[in-house]
């Protein structure tokens, strides 16, 4: 059976730098898995996710998605299957609904079914945002609310793989607990494959993740 994602011999250095961030890094992700990547700040956790969705280009090695080298897939098509949610959630200056439906304004998602207003309202409740109305400005939400909205927006595209970059680093404890709970539900209820990078001490309650530590330019399985 082909893995959903396979990283082989990955090497990467930032532009203008000779020191490698990754050297012969390998990772295999199968459908339905919950991958947790831990490591100190600056170890390259975010960079790894950016490489997977082609926001950065590796110097060596290969990344295969469903058996195909990601360089053979157009970035827009790849990102309609692999959704990346950044550490600091970004919203356009528009309503909550317009932000949630933003992916459907892009050509690559034109054929996908747009969720209706009722569906969006239901999802807002599930994402611990019951008091947020669809026609209010997304810019006025708190950072914790924006983070949940950003994850919800990524999920609406129905991606096969969700990449969450330090999803709780900018949040207070209460919001962080909600986001962790959402992540676990995405895996258990929505059957989504997740790769989450974090430097906080997070122990999932309802899922058993495959935990890796990023150290010495490579990944090491810890559980």
């Amino acid at each position: 059976m082909t893995s959903l994602l396979e990283i082989r011999n990955l090497s990467f250095a930032y532009e203008g730098s000779t020191s490698l961030v990754f050297d012969h890094l390998d990772l295999t992700v199968n459908e339905g898995e919950f991958i947790l990547i831990k490591g100190p700040s600056g170890s390259g956790k975010s960079t790894l996710l950016r490489l997977i969705c082609r926001l950065n280009q590796p110097q060596g090695g290969s990344i295969l998605f469903q058996g195909n080298d990601i360089t053979s897939i157009t970035p827009a098509k790849l990102r309609s299957f692999v959704s990346y949610v950044a550490q600091i959630p970004q919203m356009v200056d528009a309503t909550v609904e317009e932000n949630l439906l933003l992916p459907f304004t892009f050509a690559i998602n034109a054929a996908k079914t747009r969720p209706g207003t009722e569906e969006l309202r239901e999802m807002l409740s599930k994402f611990y945002l019951p008091d947020v109305s669809l026609d209010q400005s997304a810019m006025k939400l708190s950072i914790g609310q924006k983070q949940r909205l950003a994850i919800m927006r990524a999920l609406l595209q129905n991606p096969l793989l969700l990449l969450l970059d330090e999803p709780t680093s900018a949040l207070d404890q209460e919001s962080a607990v909600m986001v962790f709970s959402i992540m676990e539900k995405l895996n258990t209820e929505h059957r989504k494959t997740l790769i989450t990078v974090t430097h906080v001490d997070y122990k999932p309650e309802t899922v058993r993740p495959l935990t890796y530590t990023l150290a010495q330019r490579s990944l090491h399985i810890t559980s």
Binding site: T74, P75, A76, R79, A86, L102, F106, A107, R153, A154
Partner: peptide
Amino acid sequence: EMKLCLGAD
């Protein structure tokens, strides 16, 4: 980058 990640070219 956010728009790119949501499938925009």
